[in-house]
Structures are given as structure tokens and as C-alpha cells.
Nucleic acid binder design. Sequence first.
DNA 1: ATATAATAGATATGCAACATAACTATAATA
DNA 2: TATTATAGTTATGTTGCATATCTATTATAT
Lengths: 163, 163
Amino acid sequence: MKPATALPAQKNTRASDISDSQLRGLFGYNLKRSFSALQVDLLEVLSKFDLRMVPFSTLVMIVENPGLRQSQLADALAIERPNLVVVLDALERRELITRDRVPTDRRAYALRATLAGHQLFEKAYRAVQTHEARYLDRLTTAEREALSSALNKIRATFEETGE
Amino acid sequence: MKPATALPAQKNTRASDISDSQLRGLFGYNLKRSFSALQVDLLEVLSKFDLRMVPFSTLVMIVENPGLRQSQLADALAIERPNLVVVLDALERRELITRDRVPTDRRAYALRATLAGHQLFEKAYRAVQTHEARYLDRLTTAEREALSSALNKIRATFEETGE
DNA sequence: ATATAATAGATATGCAACATAACTATAATA
DNA sequence: TATTATAGTTATGTTGCATATCTATTATAT
């Protein structure tokens, strides 16, 4: 490979004055960094219940929508059906949910949470709410509403064309 | 495995009325869904420049901070040093950046963008700004400020303890 | 009625993001 | 000068996410 030359006559950056204002000027970058930081804490909270983000969301959806089909669930969570299968396998192995045969459609399964599943949901959901309060408490009501509305608009912007 | 039984007497959820209000009540979930939707669009924009999110961020940082060391860069981007190595390898192979020996510390490399690197940065950064305008234009000034402030508070909440 | 197409779920597989342990070479320090 | 720490690298593993393809079953189209 021929040696690519850097632009000449550039002052070196010293350790002290590293700047990321170009990236900080991008909304998406801030969104990613904030979410990543939040996620570390959330994963720690969920780990007490042997859950990760997708299995937790899955359990929440099944508790809220008993009898749900796997395809419907994958759709609602915006995850691929093959990936949901392994998540459900794990939840079923832990006897948190059941896959019940649907009499009217023998291809499909109706998903339901067991008693243990409901109990785990209650505890985990409350723990997540506590985790959320950690940062939501620092926001003003106006900020919370603006944030909520902004996130919805962002989602709407990209999901309307993307789906 | 003994058959786990679902809770009895539950009305099945019909296709039409699947609800995700429990998840929507969680801020982190909305954040994740919005970011995922945004990311699809962003990746498409970056793909025109043969870039992904981390290589793009890396290039931006090197352009803004010529002479930067790899460790400093990994720190600033909050990515692991080993993962940065392969990103830099690829950028160097494309002659977008150079790794220059540092005379005062022969372990270290000073990272600099080549002319091609600067040019790609200019084009890609503008394209990303256009992408961002797609959703930022739909937000009110108040929403934009609240979102910005909220994201910073979220990051502060979790990075102050986490680092 | 039967052939064809579509759907529900599962399996296999691959890529990308991210993390850790351990190595080489240098530099800092005790 | 011996020890420790640091910069970069290599190897490797895990998780998240996507696609192609398979089966069993159901819907539809002639």
C-alpha cells in the first residue's frame, strides 16, 4: 500500500483539550450515548431477575396480552420472528410462560404467562420503574412532556416511510 | 420438564386489540424504539459513504482533533480500545486517516485525517445533518431544547456513578 | 375438489456491536 | 536497575439483529 499522507501543518491535539463538539452537535449521537448509559443501569436492574431487555419486554407484552401469537408479538416488539423463538424458548424453560395450542389454527401458539411469570413481571416492572425514576425525577414536567412528544415524532418520522 | 400451567380463565387477545401501553409507559422503551427507527435511516445515509456509525464518529473526531491518540479516542467515543483498532485499520486502508509515529512516545500513534478523509467527512457530515433535519424540523424549539437537556441529564445520571 | 399460495413457527447461519484477557513494545516509577 | 504502568494489538466470546429456508398447516383460486 502506498503511504497516504496526512494533511500537513496541523497542530496536534493535547490530552487536555479533546473536543467532541461536532458529534455533540448531532442529535442522534447524543441519543445513542444517553441510551447506552441508561442501558448499562437498566441491564443491571434486570439481571437481578435473570432478564435482559428483549425477554423483559416480551414478558410484559404477554402479561398484557394473554393469548397473543408469536407473530403478533414479534410485530409489536419490532423484532424478527426467528429471534423471538429463542427468547420464548428460554421463558418457557423457566416456566414463566406457556405456548398453548390454538384449536382454530394448529400452526399457531397462544402465549400466556404462568403465575410465576406474572409474579416476576410485577417485581421486574416495579424495579424498572424505580430505575426510570432515577433520571425522570431530574427532569421538569415540561421536559418530560417535550421529550415524550419528541420521541414520538422521531419514531413517526422514520416508521411512516420505513414500514 | 413438567408442564407449567398458564393462569386459567384468561380472555384471549384478538389480533385487533394488541396493546403495548405497559411498555409505552416506560421511557427507556420509547427511547430504544425511537433510536432504532432513527438508526435505520442514518445507516442508510452513511452507507452511501461506506461508513457505519462508529467509523463515522471516529472520522469526525480525528478531523476535529488532529494528532489524537487511540486511547484518547476510544475514551472520547466510549468504545473499547481493541474495537477501535479494527475501525482504524479499515479507515487507514481506505487512506482516510494516517497513524503517525509520535517521536516522544514510540508506543503511541497520532491520528490524522488525510485530504480524502477531510473531504469524506465534509460530505458525510452534511448528509447526516440533512438526515437529522428530517425529524428535527418537526420539533418545536421547546421540544428540541427539552430533548437536548433531558438527554444530557440522563447521561449525567448514569455516567456520574458509572465512571 | 384440488392445486397453489400464504402463514405460523422453527432452524441454521452470518454479521455487527461490544466486551475481556492476554500479548508485545515501550515508558514511567520506585 | 527492577518493577509497574501504558499504548496498541491479537484472539476470542457474547449479544443483538437480520435473512434464507424448512415444516406443518391454513387460505385462495381455479
